[in-house]
Design a protein around this nucleic acid. Structure first.
Lengths: 196, 196
DNA sequence: TCAGTATATTAGACCGGTCGGTCAAGTCAA
DNA sequence: TTGACTTGACCGACCGGTCTAATATACTGA
């Protein structure tokens, strides 16, 4: 594992487990066994690192269980349950490892830095758009296959993403992953009707 | 307006508009025209200030439009729309004043500091519990009055609060209060059935 | 009413520590 | 010999918090 990857992985872990402002470059470096000069050889700034961390996590998600959850082979509405389950097990594992529920890195960063850093905010926004696109596709297929009655798929998809983020927020505040398991499945009840 | 109130009001504005870590005591003092010595006469620490700000905002909410929204005179399910509207107009006003959507102070703080500060986390958790209690009461009455079919009122109430927080999170990330207006009303579609 | 005193509040210099970031000198493989 | 990478000392700015001295304000007994 080369230096840059080590920095990235460490930063991701620390940012996720605590917060952006709370984690210093010095701490990242010492935990990754890297000197400061090396750090600034690979990253221009802390902001640059944050962007790289966001992209890194986003890629992992897209190729990881998000890809599994939104597999076309699964019945569309079951994909939502799969997604909720994945979040639950992930948060539960993280809590049992570190004692605290880290929540969603994207949601955490969004609320922490989006009033201060326009570049990061825009990137996070794009990631949410992409995520809501997955929900959108699932909803389109669910309607197509007669699994649910027609509705405003775009709006409902975004609402579902919002709900998932909200559930994670509340679960993190309670420090209890079970909140995700208890409230998560209700994501399927959210409906925004078509305008006519 | 005495010194302590000035500190409190300024801190609240800054914490809400930016973040906890990003706002220093020095900045709060200079904006409130207070010296550091005075600050530490009234507050033991920055954490102490945060707690006071949280309580202050919580009281304002409880006696402000939350009290209006959850007025017993309103039909229960209409209270939810009232609440969503209030959030929308508030965020819109804040954005037109400062250019940025601040989101929900409690949600912001929850994601920023709850992994780091157990005391603040617990307080925020209590506030969320109280808020979900309002939803709960509205749902109980809605069922009682035949406005909606029976459901798990406790779980649904919490789910609705989660949804509201999630919508605000997404709106803040988009920096667009209209997200609240567009997605907010779907809060009424959320249902968690009774266990039997 | 007043002197005297205790207490609440203000003032701002000061503290050690940490922050993000820079830099010149070095190592090492191609 | 070149260019990628590493080392770690160093920078000014800022952080939360402390401290002592000055100044209002409130309360006291005569």
């Amino acid at each position: 594992m080369d230096t840059k990857e080590r920095i990235l992985a460490t930063a991701r872990e620390l940012f996720h487990g605590r917060s952006y402002a709370d984690v210093g470059i010095k701490e990242i470096c010492s935990m990754a066994n890297v000197q400061k000069g090396s750090f600034y050889h690979f990253f221009q700034s802390k902001q640059d690192l944050a962007m790289a961390v966001i992209d890194d996590m986003s890629d992992d998600w897209a190729n990881g269980f998000v890809a599994e959850a939104f597999d076309d082979a699964l019945p569309p509405m079951e994909r939502l349950d799969y997604m909720v389950d994945a979040v639950y097990f992930w948060q539960k594992a993280a809590k049992s490892l570190e004692g605290r529920m880290p929540g969603c890195l994207f949601g955490n960063l969004a609320l922490e830095v989006s009033t201060r850093d326009e570049v990061i905010r825009a990137r996070l926004n794009a990631i949410f758009d992409k995520a809501s696109g997955r929900f959108h596709q699932a909803l389109e297929q669910a309607i197509e296959q007669g699994e649910i009655p027609p509705l405003d798929t775009k709006a409902t998809a975004t609402a579902m993403l919002a709900y998932l983020e909200g559930v994670i927020l509340l679960a993190k505040t309670r420090n209890d992953p079970d909140v995700v398991r208890n409230l998560g499945p209700a994501i399927k009840s959210i409906r925004i009707e078509r305008k006519h």
